[in-house]
Amino acid sequence: MEMAELQDKIFAFCEAAKGKKKLKEKDILIGVSTELSLEKDEVKKALREMINVGRLMYSYGGGASSVEIPSEEYLREKGMIK
């Protein structure tokens, strides 16, 4: 699978959980790799790229970390959008 396509799938997976469940990195790796029959490492690599460019981000709340879709405020702060 193309990296871009995989990343879109990962994004969709996160979008589906938004507001319902806080996703740990592992939840995404297991969820997406099972859904697409891929190796977890492959998903991990794609996910990390997305986090590095601010398409997804690590979040923290209620004492634990999770992965989320960044808010506009976050993207503006990081200079990703104007």
Binding site: R48, N52, G54, M57, Y58, Y60, G61, S65
Partner: peptide, 17 residues
Amino acid sequence: KHGGIVGVLGYGGGVIG
């Protein structure tokens, strides 16, 4: 207040809001 979501790009820790 409770810690917020802040950090540096790519990392998920090291900064506590």
